[in-house]
Simulated assay, not measured.
Amino acid sequence: MAEDKEHAFWYNMRTGEVEHGLQSTSLDRVGPFNTREDASHALEKLRANSAKWSEDDARDAR
């Protein structure tokens, strides 16, 4: 993850666009990401994390 949030890349959930820097409200964006490429794959990363967390929860419930 990017440490310099003002110069990092973000994925805007409302527009589906990658942004450079803090352009939109925090409610609309996810990130930060180090590269535009990483930010462009934000939804894939979110889906993968969600699936992993669901699997972890199911395993813990046993």
Rank of each mutant, 00 (worst) to 15 (best):
M1G: 10
M1C: 03
M1T: 06
M1N: 06
D4P: 02
D4Y: 04
D4S: 12
K5R: 08
E6C: 07
E6P: 04
H7G: 13
F9W: 13
W10Y: 15
Y11L: 07
Y11C: 01
Y11I: 10
N12C: 14
N12V: 09
N12D: 15
N12F: 06
M13E: 10
R14P: 01
T15A: 13
T15Y: 14
T15P: 10
G16I: 07
E17R: 15
E17P: 08
E19R: 05
E19T: 06
E19M: 05
E19K: 05
H20P: 01
H20C: 11
H20D: 08
G21C: 10
G21D: 11
G21Y: 11
G21K: 09
L22V: 11
L22K: 09
Q23E: 15
Q23V: 15
Q23N: 12
S24K: 09
T25K: 15
T25R: 15
S26D: 13
L27A: 11
L27S: 15
L27C: 06
D28R: 12
D28V: 04
R29L: 00
R29G: 00
V30I: 08
G31M: 03
P32K: 01
P32M: 03
P32S: 04
F33A: 02
F33E: 00
F33L: 03
F33I: 05
N34A: 06
T35Q: 11
T35I: 07
T35G: 06
R36L: 06
R36H: 14
R36N: 10
E37T: 08
E37H: 12
E37G: 05
A39Q: 04
S40W: 03
S40V: 06
H41F: 05
H41L: 09
H41S: 07
A42N: 00
L43E: 15
L43C: 13
E44K: 06
E44H: 05
K45L: 04
K45H: 08
K45I: 04
K45G: 00
K45A: 04
L46R: 06
L46E: 05
L46I: 08
L46W: 02
R47E: 09
A48Q: 05
A48C: 00
N49L: 08
N49S: 02
S50A: 09
S50R: 07
S50N: 05
A51H: 07
A51V: 05
K52S: 02
K52P: 00
K52G: 00
W53N: 13
W53L: 14
W53V: 13
S54R: 10
S54T: 10
S54Q: 11
S54H: 10
S54E: 13
D57V: 12
D57N: 14
A58T: 15
R59C: 03
D60F: 11
A61V: 09
A61Y: 10
